[in-house]
Design a protein around this nucleic acid. Structure first.
Lengths: 236, 236
DNA sequence: TCGTAAAACCTATCATACAGGTTTCAGAAG
DNA sequence: CTTCTGAAACCTGTATGATAGGTTTTACGA
């Protein structure tokens, strides 16, 4: 192992990826707009269709373009899927731990709660409250509680009127589905579980009432308790 | 257009992607570990090498695996590249605007500054201070000031001891390089520009001194001024 | 034991083929 | 003149085979 391992000399695929990304920018394409067909790109960029396909697959994995049998590639809507996979990979390969995820969520969600209180529409406030109430009502069906929990946090992020927050919070959904049951089990008594749901109701109320400080404080409290529950379970 | 456009019937590539991702998880592979060769995967999953290659390209785009000519695919280190491309795509296609990015950064970086003040090593504190001082010294070379600015923020994120923060802040680097010059130009006087750099020095000092509240407050102030500068420039 | 060169292995790219999905367009029907 | 329809043209998803050139392993000789 003497050689300092050289670069890949000819990375046609990488070149095609940046060429296509630049094409989206230069032609000012927006979500839904169609890109040139594989054959066309192949001729224009002077590489085989194989290379173009692998480049398009790369962009599709990142959700920058969307592919479909028979259809020409289209520019894609913003999506949290790519970031979600990055995070899951980090967790699976021990590069990120659960506590770090909660620390990040706590930071971001205290803000989304405050912003939602300031910016939410009435419809959004109703949707958030509905999820909180559903958590209380479905208290015997953990799976449902979890889904409403996740949906509530995402709804708050959307109500913050910042798609970047929605993107990040949405991306946490994947790992949350894997860790949420741990937190649920660590809350052994029904009272404790109900308290968690009631805290969500309180957050929803603060957002509906347009009280940013209270919303942020309650959200922070929620994460405080969640982290404590996970620590008590000895699982983080 | 009567049909409600059906699903892709046979998505071999998608299947291969999840199969390979599951393989990483099930075999408990860590960064650097080698995956089976394309030919092997092709046989095991009963699809052509074409499909396997496109699946591996997808995973490589997400930085879950790393590819190299002649080398077998390896599990990849966590990387902000995929998220960075997502964000840039959002900006280029008008799905995210600059102000929203600053709002997110402000939220996150007030926290990373506080955490860095609590957790930084001495070496990290020195590195952060070095970037801040370099910003002052190189004040006549905007390009250099920008690079030290970006590096400083990323160094703070690393010092926060949460790789997730480092990932997110790192991902913002790409768009920052495109918007930073706007902020610089909007600060017309030398005094104003120097004040910006001095604020970075103050942040670095607070982190070095282990003062989380001060670090967070200064960071918030920094973003406050940056957003004002951009608004004044009329560009967001 | 150690180093080295050949052998085996592997990936990157290209060309070609075909099944089946999608879009377009001309012509028929109203 | 408009609307519908079906065929034609277009396009993607997958498979196979081939070759250049990079990497890892192996076996041999010093």
């Amino acid at each position: 192992m003497l050689e300092p391992q050289g670069q890949i000399r000819s990375d046609y695929v990488g070149g095609a990826v940046t060429a296509i990304a630049r094409l989206i920018r230069d032609r000012d394409l927006k979500p839904g707009d169609r890109l040139p067909a594989e054959g066309t790109l192949s001729k224009e960029l002077q590489v085989s269709r194989t290379v173009i396909r692998e480049a398009l697959r790369s962009l599709a994995a990142l959700h920058l373009v969307q592919l479909g049998a028979g259809k020409r590639p289209t520019v894609a809507q913003l999506d949290d899927d790519a970031f979600s996979l990055t995070i899951e990979h980090g967790v699976v390969t021990d590069q990120i731990d659960i506590q770090q995820i909660y620390e990040a969520r706590r930071t971001i969600e205290a803000r989304t709660a405050a912003l939602a209180a300031l910016r939410r529409t009435d419809a959004e406030a109703r949707a958030i409250s509905a999820h909180a109430r559903a958590m209380l009502e479905r208290r015997n069906d953990p799976r449902k509680v979890m889904e409403h929990d996740i949906a509530l946090h995402l709804a708050i992020a959307h109500a913050s009127c910042n798609p970047l927050f929605a993107l990040i919070i949405g991306a946490f959904g994947g790992v949350t589905r894997q860790t949420w049951p741990i937190g649920w089990k660590s809350r052994t008594s029904d009272d404790e579980r109900q308290a968690m749901s009631e805290l969500h109701v309180a957050i929803a109320d603060a957002i509906a009432a347009g009280e940013p400080t209270a919303a942020a404080r309650l959200m922070d409290e929620h994460f405080d308790q969640s982290i404590k529950a996970l620590l008590r379970a000895g699982l983080i």
